[in-house]
Amino acid sequence: MFDQLFFYLDFPFVRYAIIVGTLISLCSSLLGVTLVLKRYSYIGDGLSHVAFGALAIAAVLKVTNNMLIILPVTIAVAILLLCGGKDARIKGDAAIAMVSAGALAIGYLLMNIFSSSANVAGDVCTTLFGSMSILTLKPTDVYLCVALSIVVLVTFVLFYHKIFAITFDENFARATGVNVTLFNLLIAIIIAVIIVLAMNLVGALLVSALVVFPALSAMRIFKSFFSVTVAAAVISVICSLAGILVAILAGTPVGSTIVAMDIVAFLICFITSS
C-alpha cells in the first residue's frame, strides 16, 4: 500500500491535490466555528449553489477564467445574506433556502440550454460532487488557491479578537467600539472565497460538511473559542488528507470520501465526549 502511495505521490497533480486540500480544509474550518456559533451553518450550502449558478453563467459566456465571474457573484450574495441584518425583508434561513435552490435551478437550466459540452450530466455531476476536480488542478489553480488561502489565514489571525467578539454578541461588540458591519462584511467575503475554493475539493453539494463537521467535532471535546478553532483546524486537515489518500488508493470519489472521514471524526469526538 505504501509503495503504491509513494508511486502516486510522484505525480505532480497528486501533490497539488494534497496542498490545495490541506489549505482549503484549514481555511474552511477556521470560519466554520464562527458560522456554526452564529447559526449560519447552512450558508456554505447556499453560497456553493450560488457559485454553481455563476459557473454556469461563466460557461455560457465562454469566459476563459471563470473565477472572474464566480468570485464576485458569490461574494455579492454572501454580503447580502450575512449583512442583510434585521432590516432585510426575507431573513435568515428563508433567504439562504431561496438563494440556494434558485441558483442551483438557474445554473442547471443554463447549462442544459446553452452548454457546448457533449456531457452536460457529467459536468453537472462533477461540479456538484467534486468527483475529480481536485485531481485535475493546474499549477495556476494551485497558486491562486495558495494566495487566497494566505489572505484568509492572515485576515483571520489579524482580526481574531474582533471576529471572536462579533461571533458571540454583536451588540456587546458594537458597544465596545467594534465596527460590526465592517467585520460582518469581512466574514462574508472570506466565507465566499472559501466556498469557491472548497467547491474544487468536495463539490458544491458537500461544501457544508467542510464548514460544519470539524467545528462540531471540536465543540464536543473543547469548550473555549480558541481551543475549538485550533482543534477544528487540526481535525479538518487530518480528515481531508486521509480522505484524499483513501480516495486515490481505493478509487473512491474524493469529495464523498473526505466527508465520510469528517463523519467518522465527528462520531469519534461524540463518543469520546460522552
Partner: peptide, 13 residues
C-alpha cells in the same frame, strides 16, 4: 495498476 480515481486523473492529464 492504478485505482479508478488515479486512472481518470491520469487520462485527463
Amino acid at each position: 495498476r492504478m485505482s479508478s480515481t488515479m486512472v481518470y486523473s491520469m487520462v485527463f492529464q
